[in-house]
Design a protein around this nucleic acid. Structure first.
Lengths: 217, 217
DNA sequence: AATAATTTTTAGTTTTGTCTAAATTTATTT
DNA sequence: AAATAAATTTAGACAAAACTAAAAATTATT
């Protein structure tokens, strides 16, 4: 698989998680930052390699082979992210672009050794699950903070939007994976929340709460 | 710089160390495993980017800019090799091809953090010097074991040929960087050596001795 | 010094992945 | 159901990096 093919497979995989139907050309083009015509070309090639099923005008779905390939790329991406954060002291907003490059390094042995070196982590720094060498991963029942009821205690599990500005916002307010939060007020007007964290009350907007995955504890 | 441009710059650098004159097209083609015509094309592009000086039919030399770029690639290559051997338990004959890929990851910050994480190593697993972030490296006065006189005690510093088969030979005979060796006989007929290492006598051929860098201690 | 051999360059193709613009199919609206 | 809008595909072109084959320049040999 070429660098470019890997990127397409990965994008199709991520889109599949959100909508399990055939993934349409424009959605892929949007994610890859290319044009629909380029996507059509590439999708044909991937179909010939039996990585995707493709019917003209009907979008694509990953084959078993394509799904496994995608998971292995995601595995590499997330393990490298753990390495960068845990061993090289990068912050969680810095690692995505670097991992985009590192995920294309071709060596199963390397990635399995890295996995072992990191102690077989189950999640990356953003709280997303890391597939094991067979593609299996742990699925945590998580919900968005904005959907949790009043007076519930929750633990922070991950982020939905992992843009640097959002991650930096979280860092500034000392919200990280594992943080325990209690919802003590919901403002009906704008759905902003007052939360209690480490004994301190913080006001957060509905937009923030809608990007933070938590589980009730 | 593209992946391919980086490979050319690196090869020109390595050839420059052996012959400090203009590097000829065929020599580059041999190292890159491409054809002379391809080299001419690429060399023109590198000259436009002012990474090399190039006169038709006269070969190329690196500019200051090109030299620095080359050293940064070598720096990355060798630091990744140290990482693979020290942290991920690869053997020294396995790491070259992986490092060939990793050396193209584009991030100064990453490589400087890796350098720090590894404790600012001065040499890679084959005994070759690692340039620092400014391109400076330590030059050790080393000679080939085949050139050392009788009854001298030497320390193993590195290898000339780092092909897997040679490195595996060394592993099998437990010769590694830092090994102390005494030359106790030289056979005039075939120039084979009898050496003393860890109290044991081993017979090694002239070819092996001609690939092993040592310093007299 | 002329010829032969070698090296290097040029010219023209190929492959991969992209693009624009036009054509076609599917979806939506009136 | 016809017309319009949107999405998708096709056709043709381009840039990067490689190739083959032929031409040109350099080096070696007689």
């Amino acid at each position: 698989m070429t660098y470019s093919e890997e990127n397409y497979i990965k994008v199709i995989y991520h889109l599949s998680l959100v909508s399990p139907k055939g993934i349409n050309t424009n959605a892929i083009a949007g994610m890859i930052e290319s044009k629909a015509s380029s996507v059509t070309d590439m999708v044909k090639k991937l179909a010939e390699k039996e990585l995707v099923d493709y019917q003209k005008y009907q979008g694509v779905t990953l084959t078993q082979k394509g799904l496994h390939a995608a998971k292995m790329i995601v595995r590499k991406h997330r393990l490298w992210e753990v390495f960068l954060v845990e061993k090289l002291d990068f912050t969680w907003d810095e690692v995505h672009d670097l991992a985009e490059e590192l995920e294309h390094i071709k060596s199963e042995k390397l990635i399995n050794r890295l996995d072992e070196f990191l102690g077989f982590p189950k999640e990356d720094p953003h709280g997303d699950p890391i597939p094991d060498r067979y593609g299996q991963m742990i699925k945590v029942e998580k919900q968005l903070l904005s959907e949790v009821g009043l007076n519930k205690k929750v633990m922070c599990l991950g982020v939905k939007d992992s843009s640097p500005s959002f991650l930096q916002y979280l860092d500034k307010h000392q919200i990280s994976l594992g943080s325990e939060i209690e919802i003590i007020n919901k403002e009906a007007f704008d759905m902003s929340l007052t939360i209690l964290m480490n004994g301190k009350e913080i006001l957060i907007s509905n937009k923030i709460a809608g990007n933070l995955f938590v589980k009730v504890i």
